[in-house]
Amino acid sequence: MRFLPAALSALALTAFAATPADATPASTIHTVSVHGTFGAYRPGATASTYQPALVPPGSSAHVFSISSGTLGTSTALAVSGLVPGHHYGAHVHTKPCGATGDAAGPHYQFAQDPVTPSVDPAYANPRNEIWLDFTADATGTGFARSRVGWQFGERRAGSVVIHESHTHTDPGHAGTAGARLACVTAAF
């Protein structure tokens, strides 16, 4: 059994505690829990690194998400073995990981921007997307969480992509966070 960090366990307990005892099928709880160790891309791999200098092979990530109609969606990302002190961006993307970072598609947006790539803060923001920016501590460990007031519908997301820098919020750059360094496939 893989170790689930205490912070991820706390996220799950908080979300479950908020669930009404008489939850209806419309508020069915959906969970995702994925652990991956980063390495070079290969078909079927859970975690891939595209820039080993910033996401070294052997480093790891855990993605946990829980959602329901009454709770919205809470997502957590825990990483270890990254570059100490580096400021990373991370977002939920539309497709699974592939041979390059671009294979994961754009950020998942609840309300989709008709313009691609989306850099309009009306769409590219942490209420309409799931942003998981973090700074690796002195040991290369990082943690981020997001809570949005919606859940995935028929359109699902397929991965969490780790980016080169924290996410920008200014018009014309909103949602951008530099190069795609690594990816974790997670079927939201």
Rank of each mutant, 00 (worst) to 15 (best):
Y41W: 15
L54D: 12
W150N: 11
G153A: 11
G149W: 07
A138D: 15
A136K: 09
G140F: 04
P43A: 14
G105S: 05
S68A: 14
H91I: 05
G149P: 15
N125R: 11
R147T: 14
A45E: 11
T116K: 07
S146N: 09
P106V: 04
P121C: 02
L54A: 09
L54K: 12
H35P: 01
G72Q: 08
V115F: 01
H35Y: 14
H62W: 14
T135I: 10
E154G: 13
D133H: 09
A23I: 02
G101H: 07
A47H: 01
L82F: 15
T49V: 04
Y41G: 00
A103Y: 05
P56A: 08
K95N: 13
T49L: 00
G101W: 10
L54T: 13
R147I: 10
A111V: 14
D137I: 12
T94V: 12
W150K: 09
T49C: 07
H107Y: 02
S118T: 12
G69I: 00
W150P: 13
A136L: 08
V63C: 01
H35M: 06
G81N: 07
L54E: 12
P43G: 08
S33E: 15
D120P: 12
P57L: 09
R156A: 12
H30Y: 15
F152C: 04
Q151Y: 13
A136M: 05
P106C: 00
Y50T: 12
